[in-house]
Amino acid sequence: MTLSPPASGRLADAYDLVIFDLDGVIYLSDSAVAGAVDAVKRLHDEGRAVAYATNNASRRATAVADLLTGLGVPAAADEVLTSAAAAARRLADRLEPGARVLVVGAEALRQEVAERGLTPVTSADDKPVAVVQGYGREVGWVILAEAALAVRAGALWIATNTDRTLPSPRGPLPGNGSLVAVLRTALDREPDEVIGKPEPVLFEEAVKKDSARRPVVVGDRLDTDIEGAVRAGMDSLLVLTGVSQPRDLVAAPEHQRPTYVAKDLAGLFDDVETLAVTGEGTGWRVTDGRLEGHGDPIAALRTIAAAAWSGTDVTHLEGAGDEAASALRTLGLGSVSRS
């Protein structure tokens, strides 16, 4: 699926399915991101199709839907796609019914594995034929040691995702990728398969379920949400409410560059021409190491990112005037001195 961004109109009107990441986009831990509830409710009120695709394997789809509903976001379980469910499906496709699987993660992952007709175990002594690893707050040395022994004995090793961090109101916390790194170090090898983003599996499932022809992915992480959208050939919107920040966007490699950038989900109702990462029509320009112009700092960010992606050195960008210097300070970019 390869799309050309529409030339004008609201972003929400340009696509027939909006696929949301959750952590850092809709909520942080169990608290709603500012403006997120109103934005998603507005989409529902307008009859827009939505889906939620999360790498977090610590909740099942029903629990995620309940959490969203409790926050005021209209959501049904069949709109939620989790890496836990996708990993369990993949295991069921590859293994014999009743096969033993050592589960590293939360109870939600264990339940998904059991419901696929497989047998969850917790010890390498049970001779599991596979290890599935997902995020869980209670994951510790004991279960990681059992997983290492099982993989070393020949078990298939599947990770639900490799997100290094999880966003939270207190700042980034260790994610499943940090736990996968423990086994990677102990085993000196990579997992046999990673299911979640940036792999396009969850996005492809969402598109298939809704028979969508023009989906857009909304996420807060360049290395999972946006890269996953690029791999799937889908347009994407980066919101700056979670992990990836302006400096990350400016330095993004080609395979992690979003189609659009917005401060938050209110951007869904802005014009696509305004949101697109280009150096045109923003009120800003980058010339000879200087940011010039006036207007919204996020518009300045789009201009700076476009310049950087085209090969312009923006490492020591300076603001030409008070407003430009203020925009750079707000974005955490450049030397922010006036010239």
Rank of each mutant, 00 (worst) to 15 (best):
A32H: 06
T119N: 09
V40W: 01
A49M: 11
T62K: 11
V37E: 13
D93I: 13
L43F: 05
V80Q: 08
A36D: 01
A87S: 15
A36T: 04
R116G: 04
P97C: 11
E79G: 03
T54I: 05
L81N: 07
L43E: 07
E112A: 15
G35K: 02
T122A: 13
A88F: 00
E79T: 10
I26H: 02
E112G: 12
R116Q: 10
E107P: 00
P97I: 04
A88V: 04
S83I: 10
E112V: 13
L28E: 06
N56D: 14
L71F: 12
A87Q: 03
L95N: 02
S83R: 03
V64I: 15
A32C: 08
V64N: 13
A86V: 08
A76H: 13
T69V: 11
V121T: 14
V103C: 08
A92Y: 01
L67D: 07
V104K: 08
V37L: 08
Q111M: 02
P74V: 12
E107W: 01
G70C: 06
T62S: 15
A106W: 02
D93Y: 12
R48Q: 09
S83Y: 06
V73M: 09
A85E: 10
S31G: 07
R90Y: 09
G98T: 07
A86N: 05
A92F: 02
A114V: 07
V101R: 09
A49T: 14
V121R: 11
Y52P: 01
V104H: 04
L28V: 08
T82M: 10
A88W: 00
A53I: 10
A108G: 03
D93T: 15
D38N: 04
A108R: 03
R100E: 01
R90G: 02
A85H: 05
A51I: 10
S83E: 13
A87N: 06
K41S: 15
V113H: 08
V50D: 00
A51F: 05
L81D: 08
T62M: 12
I26Q: 03
Y27V: 00
A76C: 09
D30Y: 01
